[in-house]
Each structure stands twice: as C-alpha cells, then as structure tokens.
Design a protein around this nucleic acid. Structure first.
Length: 644
RNA sequence: GCCAGUGUAGCUCAGCGGUAGAGCAACGGUUUUGUAAACCGUCGGUCGGGGGUUCGAGUCCCUCCACUGGCUCCA
C-alpha cells in the first residue's frame, strides 16, 4: 500500500507504507540522507528510523534547521551523560535538554565528587571516544511500571520523580551503547554524528529550579557536526567577549563599580555621563513631541506609600530595608528607598482634581530606584541595585487606552530602530498562581485582551510569556541580547487597573461623575544602566558620532602646528562638538594609535601642508585616511552626522 | 542567597614552599616626528582581608569579602 507525503515546497511523492525518514531522505538526495537528523511528520518530530504509516506533511531537518540543532544537541546531552556514567559510576541524572546554544545536563555526582573546569576536557575526550564508536540511538517503548523498576534498580531518584509526573503515559527510553535514559526523543540516528563536542562550563542548578531542593551540578556544552563549525563558534565567542560592556566600560572609562561605594551601585564616569545625557536628551525630545510632561521626585518615600501601592509586600525581599525614624514622643516614621517611581507620580496625579478634558496626563521622569538584588545576581550594568528608569505614567480614560498603548509601543520601537537593535517582544501575562498578582481578575483579563488586540492591530511580532506579568498588571516587554547571547529586558509597556484603585485616583467625566483612570507604565530604554550596557556591546564601543564621549581628536604633527591645531579645536568646540587636542610631544603615529584605541570617531591631523592650505586631514575611526578637507567642510560633515 | 571558579603594581598578566617580576600607564629627561605605539631613566605591591600549618607562605589549609559563569528572582 502506498502513502502520499507532502514536502515543505508543496510537492508530493508516493511511498510504501511504513517508509522511514531515512529512506525518504535517500530518495531525495544522497547529501540529505547523510545530513538528515530527524523528520517532522505533521509538525511532530520523529526519529529517522520511525516508520510512517499514513499520508502526511513531512519535513526532514538537518543541522541547518533550528529544530535539527535541537535534536543534535539533545543527543549530545545523552552522549555526555554516557561519558559521565563511564567516568563517574553511580552518577544520577536530572534533566538534560537542548538549549538555544547547545545543551546541558544536571547531574548529582556520587559521594562528594566535585567537578571543575579542569575536568571538562577529560569528559569531552570520553565523549569523542564514544562518538567514534558510532552506535545507534535506539528507541523503545516501555511500560510505566517497568520504567520505574529500571530506575529503582539503578537508584536514580530524579528520574523516578520525573516518572511520577508521567503516570499513565507511554514511556520511551533511548539507549546508545551502554547508556539508557528516560527520554521523549527525538534523537540523531547514531553517536557518530556527534564528533565535535565542546564542554563550556560547570554551574550549580537547583533540582527543578527550586532553591529549597538539592543543588545539582550543571554541565553546559555544545556540539557541531563539523570541526570547522566548532572552531567558528569558539572564535565568535572570543570576539563576543571583547565586546563585553564590563571590559569596554573600563577601557573607555565609561563607568565603574567599586565595593567602596557598594556592589551593584554603578558610578557613571565623565565619558559614560556624556552618553547618558545624550540618550536622555534624545528621549526627552521624543517625549515632548508626544505630549509628556517632565517631573522630578525624591529618592525615598514614606513606607506607607508603598504599602498602599502594594510594592512593599510583593517586593519585600528585593528592597533595601526601610529607614525608621523615631521622634521624641516615640512615634515612628518609616521611609523606603524607592523601588519604583509610580507611587510618587500617582501622588502628583492625585494632587488636584482632574477633568476628562485633561486626560491623558503623561508624567515622565528619569527616576532612580533601588532594589536589593541578591549578590549573586549582580552583573556589570545589566543587573544592579541602583538604576535610573526612563519612566513615565500615563493616566487616561478607558477609551483612550488603546491609542496610548499604541503610541507607547511606537515610541519604544522608534528607540530600538534608532539604535538598530534586534528586539523580541513578549506579551507578559499572568499565570494561575493568584498569590503573585493583585487586583480583580476580570480587569486583568480585559487588560490582557486589550494588549493583545493592540499588538495584533499594529502587526507586532510577539510571543506570550505566561507568568511574566508584574503584580499589578500585564506587560509588553522588549527583550534584547547582550554580546554573549544573554537576554535582557529593556523597554516595557504595562497596563495597570490596580493602582488607580489602590490610590483612589479619579477624574470627572463629561457626565459630571467620578471615574477611575487607567494607568500605563512605560520605559522605552528600561533602565539607563542596562541600556548603556547593551549599546556598549551593540556598538562594540564604537559609538555613533552623536553619542561618542569624544567626537573628534585634533593631532598636530609637530609643535609648529600647535597654535593652528588649537584654533581648529576651538572652532569645533565653539560649534558644540566634543573635541580633544593632543598636543603632546609624541609622534603622530602614536597619537593616531591612541585616538583609534579610544574609538574616537574622527581624528584631524594637521601638519605643515594643512597649515599652509588651511585644511585638515580627516581620519575616520575604523576606516582610515579620508583625505584633506577645509574646516567648513568638516563642520558640514559633522553637522550631518550629529543628527540622531 | 546557593554551586563552581578567580582575586599578584592604575591596567594586562607571569611567578605556585626558599629574598616579589614583565609590558603598558604615571613621573623626569632626550626626541619634533605624516596615518595604529620613539628612546633613556625613575616611581609604584603588608601578592583581596583575617586566622592557621611550616624553620620559612602569593604559593598549602580554614574563614570572610569581592568578582566571573550558572541557579532562583527581575529593569
């Protein structure tokens, strides 16, 4: 009997019933058969050895496909597990999935064995040895009871716990060589595919992500089908490390963090401050265009304010403890370093009667907030304990809500577009854990629906993150990656029906009755610190002209040109540019080298020729000699570049 | 906070039981130079803090702190 299989390009072919993915691949091309890792049948992944029994849409995947990589890395995790079992008999296994860049396995090593980085090459060598044997990954279906018996006999309580959640389902085991694991699959045909593994790091990881449970050892790795791909990956990783904002932040003197002030409390150095002020000016201008009003509020606030808002109970363990003052009568007053700006802004809103004619009210502030993050969480400028949000709160009527959400998303996208950043958008909704959230469920559902409607209407590409909402409402979060590929949330737009209720915010409607406004919290950059960390890495420190701390250096070749060079520097400085004159008695090559190292966008070199012809020689950072220009021409060039 | 790793001069790093080193930077000179680093000299460290082992400790052990990679949590 024949079945008809449809391929991704829409073409169809007839096959015998029971044909395997491998046969199909062979029927298409020799090359595909060699590179095929798995087959998707009606969207579900299968091993290449699985017989296909009915008409279906099929897609054969290779390492070039994301799904193929996932299969490859998942199999690599099994291979590593086999190696670990060979080297550390008695090791117990948690979970070992493929991740975006590679795979990991969480393991419980036998009696006090501790793994460090130095052990990894050894495990890696074992993996290569096992890969050389090129044994097949074999799938077997097994009764739940038998699966339990297997792991009981093996003494692996983690797998037994996983099996508890799988009662009543068909259990599958995969075996390669001497190693058998509980696994849904899919896997590559044989270990011979996995010839080029690289183990990257060891880390602790709580079993099932629960900090009350045992900490297992997590080993991260990656693997490639070709040696060249592995080398390319390692090279890219090295390059990425050079962009690390902590490294560049030090080299370019943008910021510092010192225990003398406090961990996670970054200090903006003069160069970094130039960038920050430019970013603020850029956003301030965009906000003024969009009808925002700027406000300034204090860094601390009465604790009562945060009890009213609900921040205090929800974020109690991530706040600096309250400051408690006692007066002579013994009365206590408590103040909190503000973890958020919103309650302060709500007080501004509530400070006078509001009419529907005044709405929307848009209050913006570069507001510094403090959160007591766990010490192990601190990370350069990306994760800190004191940071400044480019915060704003929009108070509007329900009728205005959609337009306001749309316009805030538009602003956020404008920001990311300006910097040419790749962002992914997450609609952060609530999950079923009611304890995590405040407010009425009906209002939540409405807010979530409205957010999604707007996102659909403006054609936003997004995914939904359940359980990612703030306690007071759902969010739209804009997420970017740093140089090493870690994801960070930057911009955010949040809809809030809870705070207006808690703070009893009102406006008088056209009907002369009191109504509750809706609040949108939004921050396009997210935090100035985190945003700086990302743009440092995004530009690898080569900031665009308008942002560069020093925009142009003027380099006289000999002392004879110092007065001319000074005149040039003054002219540029008077025109508003950030200029550095290098009048040291150094060779021009040296001056150029340093200008390049500091990543200054332009160097203007002036020697005898330039003085005689009243010109400068322009050298562009990273590009090289652009030839001689008159100062007027340089000013024109800079004026063009200085626009955001 | 937890697991693992790392802390040596302002920076990048060597030294891993036997009297603290290099390059760069800084400082003092010499050099007047044409598109990525001139030359000579000088200064600079209770080797993260504390405790221990030892005749002797950057070097071994314990402890605390900071940082790095993860985990839980979040902008």
């Amino acid at each position: 009997m024949n079945i008809t299989l449809t391929f991704p390009d829409g073409s169809t072919r007839q096959y015998n019933q029971g044909v395997t993915g491998l046969h199909i691949a062979e029927s298409i091309s020799h090359n595909l058969a060699r590179n095929a890792l798995g087959i998707f049948v009606d969207g579900v992944p299968y091993d290449l050895s699985t017989p296909i029994r009915a008409d279906a849409h099929v897609r054969i995947v290779t390492f070039d496909d994301d799904e193929g990589k996932q299969i490859f890395w998942h199999s690599s995790a099994h291979l590593m597990a086999e190696a670990l079992e060979a080297l550390y008999p008695g090791v117990k296994f948690g979970i070992g999935p493929a991740i975006e860049q590679g795979f990991y396995y969480d393991v419980d090593l036998p009696n006090g064995v501790k793994l460090s980085l130095e052990d990894l090459p050894n495990i890696e060598a074992k993996m290569k040895e096992l890969a050389q044997r090129d044994v097949p990954f074999q799938r077997v279906e097994i009764a739940w009871r038998d699966a339990v018996a297997y792991f009981q006999q093996k003494g692996d309580e983690y797998k037994l716990e996983l099996l508890e959640g799988l009662q009543g389902q068909t259990i599958t085991f995969y075996t390669q060589g001497g190693f058998t694991d509980l696994c849904r699959g899919t896997h590559v045909p044989s270990t011979g595919f996995l010839k080029f593994p690289k183990l990257l790091s060891v880390a602790g990881a709580y079993w099932r992500g629960d900090e009350k449970r045992k900490m297992l050892t997590r080993i991260y790795g990656i693997a490639f089908p070709k040696k060249q791909m592995l080398e390319e990956f390692l090279k890219q990783r090295e390059e990425a490390e050079k962009r690390d904002h902590r490294k560049l932040g030090k080299e370019l003197e943008l910021f510092m963090i010192t225990p003398a002030i406090g961990g996670g409390l970054p200090v903006w150095l003069p160069n970094g401050t130039v960038i920050r002020r430019k970013l603020e000016a850029f956003l301030r201008e965009e906000q003024l265009k969009r009808g925002y009003q700027e406000v300034i509020t204090p860094h601390i606030g009465n604790l009562y304010l945060y009890k009213t808002s609900g921040h205090y109970p929800y974020y109690a363990d991530s706040q600096f403890p309250p400051i408690t003052l006692t007066d002579e009568t013994g009365r206590e007053e408590q103040y909190l370093l503000k973890p958020m700006n919103c309650p302060h802004h709500h007080q501004i809103y509530a400070s006078k009667p509001r009419s529907y004619r005044d709405l929307p009210v848009r209050l913006a502030e570069f507001g510094t907030v403090y959160r007591y993050e766990q010490s192990g969480e601190l990370n350069g400028l990306s994760r800190v304990r004191g940071f400044t949000q480019d915060d704003a709160h929009i108070y509007c009527t329900e009728d205005q809500l959609k337009d306001e959400i749309t316009s805030t998303i538009e602003l956020t996208q404008h920001v990311f577009k300006t910097f040419g950043m790749q962002v992914t958008t997450r609609l952060s909704f609530r999950d079923d854990n009611t304890a995590k959230y405040g407010g009425d469920i009906a209002l939540w559902e409405r807010a979530q629906r409205e957010i999604q409607e707007v996102a659909d209407e403006i054609g936003l590409e997004y995914f939904i993150g359940k359980g990612e909402a703030a306690f007071y409402g759902p969010k739209i979060d804009f997420i970017v990656r740093d140089a090493i590929g870690r994801k960070w949330q930057l911009g955010t737009v949040q809809v809030d029906y809870v705070m207006p209720e808690r703070f009893q915010l009102e406006y008088t409607g056209a009907d002369n009755a009191k109504h509750r406004p809706v609040i949108i919290h939004r921050a396009p950059f997210g935090s100035m610190e985190r945003f700086l960390s990302i743009i440092i890495e995004h530009y690898a420190g080569n900031f665009p002209f308008w942002l560069a701390p020093v925009q142009v250096s003027v380099l006289p070749i000999t002392d004879a040109q110092i007065s001319y060079a000074t005149m040039i520097a003054q002219r540029l400085g008077n025109a508003g540019y950030r200029v550095k004159l290098d009048d040291r008695a150094e060779k021009v090559n040296r001056k150029i080298a340093e200008s390049e190292q500091k990543k200054i966008p332009f160097a203007l070199i002036v020697g005898k020729k330039e003085v005689e012809q009243a010109t400068v020689s322009v050298r562009e950072h990273g590009v090289g000699d652009k030839g001689m220009l008159r100062v007027e021409e340089v000013l024109e060039l800079f004026a063009r570049l200085n626009n955001v």
